[in-house]
Write a protein that binds this DNA or RNA. Structure first.
Length: 572
RNA sequence: CGGAACGUAGCGCAGCCCGGUAGCGCACUACCUUGGGGUGGUAGGGGUCGCGGGUUCAAAUCCCGCCGUUCCGACCA
């Protein structure tokens, strides 16, 4: 391929709207062009990479006997109403304004609809169906280039099984396939236990790439092997527990104490003897929630505990109406109204506690939550902090930002029940199909690849998904000697099976060409210039480590082969 | 949805406070020059100054409204 004829609109200057490296470099390398917030055109250089990622995904999905299909992006709203997900997605789902149609944000409903029609026997399963398609989500705030956008490509796979053991097998197959996919795409990744959120289901894991541009926090310890999304991460931090003396609860004056820190500072109360109260509404039902000391409520955990995804903190007026006090003076006893109460497990059976008196300026001390409070449930609600002991080996947790590049779910029967996708077992008994769902964000793989493989000059592609394997820089192609050799290398390398981009532009200075080559980032740059050619040599530059090899003209193809093979086999 | 900033040529920006000819760099076109790290020069083409109102003899500039984009936060199956 000749660069003079190929459409690669590189930019010297960085468009102002791009902040993170992958976004800047995709724009500068002429891979993408923004159309509107969260909507991008994929230009030829970018689309080549996308296609390679999709091909790797296809190969690995086919290897676990997945079958690719193609589903409608336009869906009748009705089917989404049957599973309750029009409401669950809310404003995140795009609605067509002149028909009762929606733009599919994912495809569980459609898959289940097909299964309901055709999969009726345990003999028909297992099945793995997958699609690589455009999905639509009305993200309230698109950001970070293609990492969070309104229209994006996703590989979604769905497994259908007749038993829970079968689901476990299908899930494991996907887990293994995903590891191969990310490795082949040249990514450093890790896997964390994850929240299933409003997807429903019994378990899920996320494939993560560590990055400051990430939107998820993960807690992990490499030694013990514990790794979890902060949404579900726990630690073995000690409970508040019980103190020996257990006098009756007693109200006391706390006119200046609005926070846990105030109580600690003004009254010398140890932080772990304080029970912080919060009021949240879940689907418009209020809940009084207690946390130990300054522990941070984890809203994701609260959502799963309450089985909803619509929660919000109460407003000041609501606090007063429900409890009789403003924030800072709320507690478990003497509540103005009857409110359901939930507490973090750290507070279980705790006594000797201090908490609000539901009267501004007063608290109770010596509270025994078992004796004095009416807490219905104790669940893990706190957000873990870096340094706390992990729950497996008690090793200190690290907390890092990461980008989610894949998510695998054991869905179970939520969708098959809602859409009546049933089968008969070998006893002739009817059951809902047991499902799994497995997603990969295609553009996130590309973005993460660039996040992990770039320097100040540009991208440094892994050969597996590089737009071209080899860049040939013709230094002064006006010279017949240069043009002849470069043209010949182009042909020989292509004949050897490489994808080659030959910078044959006339009248472009060497420096300009080198800068473009570094920006575009092909794994190898074969530099054809009079400088080495007059000695019968060619320079080959390795993009990711800057190594330069001077080799005889006759060895160019063999050297490229060796260098590319080495990169393909290297650990990421 | 809360907070903030920005919108002037394809890209990066100045001009706006203090109203009066729309500018600079890059990119683009032509010619010359250079030829191993974004060569140097000469001459050009390209903009309803986001949109709509208002004030004024006169608005990129002042006022009001809207739209768009980005950042922080909320949200994110």
């Amino acid at each position: 391929m000749r660069l003079s004829r190929y459409f690669i609109p590189t930019l010297k200057e960085i468009p102002a709207e791009a902040v993170i490296p992958s976004h800047r470099l995709m724009l500068r390398a002429g891979m993408i062009r923004g159309l509107s917030s969260g909507i991008y055109s994929l230009l030829p250089m970018g689309y080549r990479v996308w296609k390679k990622v999709m091909e790797i995904i296809r190969e690995e999905m086919d290897a676990i006997e997945g079958m690719e299909l193609h589903l409608p992006a336009l869906n009748p709203k009705e089917i989404w109403e049957e599973t309750g997900r029009v409401e669950a997605f809310g404003d995140t789902m795009f609605h067509i304004s002149n028909r009762d149609l929606v733009l599919a944000p994912t495809h569980e409903e459609i898959i289940t609809h097909i299964a309901q029609a055709f999969v009726h026997s345990y003999k028909d399963m297992p099945q793995i169906w997958y699609q690589i398609q455009t999905k639509f989500r009305n993200e309230p705030r698109p950001k970070s280039g293609v990492i969070r956008s309104r229209q994006f490509l996703m590989k979604d796979a769905y497994s259908l099984d007749s038993s829970w053991e079968g689901l476990d097998e299908s899930y494991q197959k996907h887990y293994d396939a995903y590891c191969r996919i990310y490795s082949r795409c040249g990514l450093n990744y890790f896997v964390v236990g994850a929240s299933s959120g409003a997807m429903g289901g019994s378990g899920s894991q996320e494939f993560m790439v560590e990055s400051d541009a990430g939107e998820d926090l993960c807690a992990f310890n490499l030694e013990s092997g514990y790794a979890a999304n902060i949404e579900i991460a726990s630690s073995s931090i000690p409970k508040a527990g019980r103190v020996e003396e257990n006098p009756p609860a007693e109200k006391f004056d706390t006119p200046q104490a609005k926070s846990i820190n105030d109580l600690v500072e003004q009254f010398g109360i140890p932080e772990e003897r304080c029970a912080k109260a919060l009021v949240y509404f879940a689907d418009e039902t209020p809940y009084l929630i207690f946390m130990s000391g300054n522990d941070q409520l984890n809203e994701a955990k609260l959502q799963s505990a309450l089985g909803t995804n619509t929660i919000r903190p109460a407003h000041e007026e609501e606090l007063l109406a429900l409890t009789g006090a403003h924030g800072g003076s709320i507690g478990p006893v003497a509540l103005k109204t009857s409110v359901q109460q939930i507490a973090d497990t750290r507070l279980e059976h705790a006594n000797g506690m201090v908490s609000g008196a539901n009267e501004d300026g007063f608290h109770y001390r010596n509270l025994d939550l078992d004796r004095d409070a009416d807490i219905q449930r104790y669940v893990d609600l706190r957000t873990v902090l870096e340094g706390e002991p992990d729950p497996i080996g008690g090793q200190p947790l690290k907390v890092k930002k990461a980008i989610e590049v894949g998510h695998i779910f054991k869905l179970g029967t939520k969708y098959s029940e809602a859409l009546k996708a049933h089968f008969l077992d070998d006893q002739g008994k009817e059951h809902p199909i047991i499902m799994g769902s497995y997603g990969i964000g295609v553009e996130r793989i590309v973005a993460c690849h660039i996040e992990q493989r770039h320097d100040k000059d540009g991208i440094a592609w892994h050969p597996s998904i590089a737009p071209f394997h080899i860049h040939i820089t013709g230094v002064k192609v006006e010279s017949d000697m240069v043009a002849e050799h470069a043209g010949r290398f182009e042909k020989e390398l292509e004949d050897a099976g490489f994808e080659v981009l030959y910078d044959d532009r006339v009248g472009v200075s060497p420096g300009f060409k080198f800068k473009d080559a570094d920006l575009l980032g092909m794994p190898l740059n074969v530099i054809v210039g009079e400088k080495h050619l007059k000695d019968g040599n060619i320079e080959i530059k390795v993009r990711h480590n800057g190594e330069r090899h001077i080799v005889p003209v006759a060895d160019v193809v063999a050297t490229c082969r060796t260098l590319i093979d080495a990169m393909m086999n290297a650990e990421n």
